[in-house]
Design a protein around this nucleic acid. Structure first.
Length: 342
RNA sequence: GCACAGGUGGCCGAGCGGUUAAUGGCAGCAGACUGUAAAUCUGCCGCUCCUUGGAGCUACGGAGGUUCGAAUCCUCCCCUGUGCA
């Protein structure tokens, strides 16, 4: 899932995202609440209509901002008090508030309000945080079920709109287990593993995913939040992860880092100044089939906004291709198995 | 010709007797980025060596001078800008 925090995948218009084959976008509760405001979006017919995107949308609950806005927030049992990064004003996010906003945005998948625990953290601190996330999950679900119909588009969306729970528990497998089991107990149509990619070694990320995944129902979507590099997402998918989101392809693109079949490529490097090759000769995307490294480098070092646009398109294409090949492999594997079984 | 104001490292621009290889910014080179406070951030950036940390050399228009010590003070010269002839 490409990340479009502010109802926009920075630099890439929706029709191009469709052309790239993007099926679902991620938006953010906290940001859209601050601007333009969830009421405005609701009044404009919901986030899909507002941003002219007919395909699926998932909204994050604001839980990650509990982590990322570390300096600007205060966590209590009731919720989190944020100081807006835009103007410094104070805002209280509770599970109920997060649900209210997300219902008003009207995404297809909305996320329970959680606390993304920082790393490193003392075991007790992680446990406390995990317990709070569980209580918030309960409250999120209760509010969602009681109020999900209070939007103009409730009927058409009712059958499909769903609330996902989020597993926390830091880097402690036992806490992850407990979090997973109790989240499943609450019952959601899909489950996320949160609290990863917060600065821990990549090896740890994989271990936690590996140990947590089997604890989540196989017949429900399993979503790892905030990962990863191309090789990582393929690996996680192979482990059984169904969904992932990450700002990496888009942010890195804006910073001049391209992901290619040969690995990372810092397109701003001087060595590409006279390189007529496409960024990735093995990539069939609309950027690689048309532009050279030399041109992309020129755009980047010149500060042309087209650089961000083209780099982002390529990186998204690369990520989407990666996932497409994962799907093909899965299908091939299934037919292989069916053949064996059949 | 006269009067002011200036000439600083690739560029712009601080410094105006010592702690100054010389603040900043730009340009340049490289790195980071993982549920987006990110078109951001970090490092390097006179030359040559040993390569932790150092050593040597060359530098603030030019040439002299004052001083223990000068980009900083003095003299002359060159150049640039503005104004007046």
């Amino acid at each position: 899932m490409p990340v479009g925090t502010l109802a926009s995948v920075k630099g890439v218009p929706q029709h191009l995202l469709e052309e790239l084959g993007v099926q679902i976008l991620l938006g953010n509760t906290y940001h859209l609440y601050l601007r333009p405001g969830h009421q405005a979006i609701r009044d404009l017919g919901g986030l899909h209509r507002f941003m002219a995107w007919k395909r699926a949308i998932l909204t994050d609950s604001g839980g990650f901002q509990v982590f990322s806005l570390n300096e600007l927030r205060k966590v209590s049992e009731n919720g989190v008090e944020f100081r807006s990064h835009l103007d410094g004003s104070s805002h209280l996010f509770t599970p109920e508030r997060s649900m209210e906003i997300q219902i008003a945005l009207g995404a297809d998948i909305i996320m329970a309000f959680d606390e993304c625990t920082e790393y490193p953290a003392e075991r007790e601190r992680v446990r406390e945080s995990m317990e709070r996330t569980l209580r918030w999950a309960r409250r999120s679900k209760d509010y969602f079920e009681a109020h999900r119909h209070e939007v103009p588009w409730a009927e058409e969306r009712q059958a499909t709109q769903s609330l996902f729970g989020i597993v926390q528990g830091g880097m402690h497998p036992e806490l992850r287990r407990e979090s997973a089991e109790r989240t499943v107990e609450i019952g959601f149509p899909g489950y996320a593993i949160g609290g990863l990619s917060v600065g821990e070694p990549r090896e740890l990320t994989r271990e936690i995913i590996a140990s947590t995944l089997p604890l989540l129902p196989k017949d429900k979507p399993r979503y790892v939040m905030g990962v990863g590099y191309p090789d990582e997402i393929a690996e996680y998918a192979a482990m059984g992860v169904d969904m992932m989101d990450c700002v990496l392809p888009t942010r890195a693109a804006r910073h001049g880092l391209l992901f290619t079949s040969a690995g990372r490529m810092n397109i701003k490097n001087a060595r590409y100044a006279r390189d007529p090759e496409p960024p990735d000769p093995n990539c069939g995307c609309m950027v690689c089939s048309r532009y050279s490294r030399a041109y992309l480098r020129h755009l980047f070092v010149s500060g042309e906004s087209l650089a961000a646009v083209l780099n982002t398109i390529h990186n998204l294409a690369h990520y989407l291709d990666t996932m497409r090949s994962v799907r093909h492999a899965i299908r091939a594997g299934e037919s292989q198995r069916n053949r064996v079984i059949g």
